[in-house]
Design a protein around this nucleic acid. Structure first.
Length: 428
RNA sequence: GUCCCCAUCGUCUAGCCUGGUCUAGGACAAGAGCUUUUCAAGCUCUCGACACCGGUUCAAAUCCGGUUGGGGACACCA
């Protein structure tokens, strides 16, 4: 039975790198029909915070990585001390007294340590480059490398899948497995994620997973993007359902090269998911955002109307949060008109044209898309105008913007009353 | 400084293991155009890479060595 673990430390939020590590562990467990175990590494009592635990768990759930078991290292101190005592009794470790207390330290013996990495193949280390390792600090708490080994063994972890930055920890841990007589798990070191300009920075992706949620990215889109960073389903496929990926995934196919996090491509990916996502689901996600802006109120949500608007904008949205910004004129009584747009399209007096257009709209037997368009086209022809000479000013008058959905859809969903009110503002 | 990892378009990658089908394929970005109802959508096209040197071989992006470059680790942090 395959058992993998994701072992975050609650000294900060779950960020992109952690999310990606969680993804590959989860994916491997799914692909092998194994268990995905969560271990909260909260041995640092000072820096570990409950709010970070909550945030990490929330983000993992949001990404869709449900765990089968969860353990907290802070509840296992007894186990670490026992194991350290054993190493002490067998002479493999020694004590060192400082003014703060007594530490237990593992004595490194001369040897060659080989890692058989599932992704990179064999990596060889000489123990002479490794210092004696502190197991239990003088304050009585375990060090990372020690607690990690004791737990991975106790929790019967079969595959340790983690970031590249742990490669140099692995020989230290292997020595400890051997010293305690534990069976070695398999190791796989994932390449690191870099920023576009070198290191992964706040700007380029070190931000918390929850920030991406707040920015309006869809979880499946983010997961899909992360998946593509160092793995490919082949056949030039990029947009891939996670369940499909589970079927195709093989840890051996993971790249060895560090990948740069590219927000532009994430944006593109998000749009791919946005446009195929069920409008009902988008409505559920959008309603809180619209409430926040006071665009809609709890008691009078016209869901069907909202659904129509979502369909109107869905194709061109990059992030969910674009919707409240781009569609604001459907919710605001008093729209905000972009000064530049007004200057460009409404500085000329179009009273006559607007008045005539309104008359035609009011005379319509039925206020529907087809009739609106027909009325408009006829009028333009009669006035001997270019379509765009009238369409752009009307769009700006109705929406305040130069870009947006097709004008006839805008008029139709705005309704005659609001269309009239907004056009009349520009009739002298 | 020491140890370790990595190396295909600006970016993510396919190809590499099992050399020839690769004058290296796709995607994002960028640029040009079309769509004359805008673009933030769609379509078309263009630009653009095997880091370098040497070796093996009839043949190297692919195998080997070195150089250079990038990254990571060297805590009583995790």
């Amino acid at each position: 039975m395959v058992r993998v673990r994701f072992a975050p430390s609650p000294t900060g939020n779950l960020h992109i790198g952690g999310g990606r590590t969680a993804l590959f562990n989860w994916l491997y467990a799914q692909a092998k029909g194994g268990k995905f175990v969560l271990r909260i590494e909260d041995t640092d009592q000072v820096r570990s915070k409950q709010e970070f635990v909550d945030e990490i768990l929330f983000s993992l759930k949001w990404l869709g990585f449900n765990w089968d078991e969860v353990e907290f290292q802070s509840k296992r101190f007894e186990l670490y001390r026992e194991q350290a005592q054993k190493l002490l009794s067998s002479g493999k470790a020694y004590e060192e007294k400082t003014d703060k207390g007594t530490a237990i330290i593992y004595k490194v013996t001369p040897q060659t340590i080989k890692i058989n990495d599932l992704i990179r193949g064999e990596i060889v280390f000489d123990s002479s480059t490794i210092k004696d390792q502190v197991l239990i600090k003088s304050d009585g708490t375990p060090t990372y490398n020690f607690a990690c080994v004791v737990d991975d063994a106790a929790m019967q972890i079969t595959h340790v899948i983690r970031g590249d930055d742990h490669i140099s920890n692995t020989p230290k841990q292997i020595m400890l497995y051997q010293a305690m007589g534990f069976a070695l798990p398999e190791f796989a070191h994932l390449p690191l994620i870099m920023g576009t300009e070198g290191r992964l920075s706040k700007r380029t992706g070190a931000t918390a997973i929850s920030d991406y949620r707040k920015m309006g990215y869809l979880a499946p889109a983010l997961v899909n993007y992360l998946l593509l960073l160092s793995w490919s389903p082949g056949e030039n496929r990029e947009v891939i359902d996670i369940q499909e990926a589970v079927k195709l995934f093989d840890i051996k196919d993971v790249n060895k090269t560090a990948a740069a996090f590219d927000l532009k491509k994430l944006d593109w990916m998000n749009n791919q998911y946005l446009k195929k996502e069920d409008p009902e689901k988008l409505a559920d996600l959008l309603i809180p955002l619209l409430k926040e802006k006071n665009y809609i109120q709890e008691n009078n949500i016209d869901r069907n109307y909202l659904l129509s608007l979502i369909k109107l904008f869905r194709e061109r949205l990059t992030r969910l949060n674009d919707f409240p910004d781009w569609a604001d004129f459907f919710f605001l009584e008093e729209i905000v008109i972009d000064p530049k747009a007004q200057e460009k399209f409404l500085s000329k007096d179009l009273s006559k044209e607007f008045r005539l257009f309104l008359q035609r709209l009011e005379a319509l037997k039925e206020f529907n898309l087809e009739n609106i368009e027909e009325a408009f086209r006829k009028l333009v022809q009669e006035l001997n105008l270019e379509t765009k000479a009238l369409i752009h000013p009307i769009r700006v008058a109705l929406t305040g913007k130069t870009v947006g959905p097709g004008l006839f859809e805008v008029i139709y969903y705005l309704g005659l009353a609001r269309t009239k009110k907004r056009l009349e503002k520009f009739i002298k």
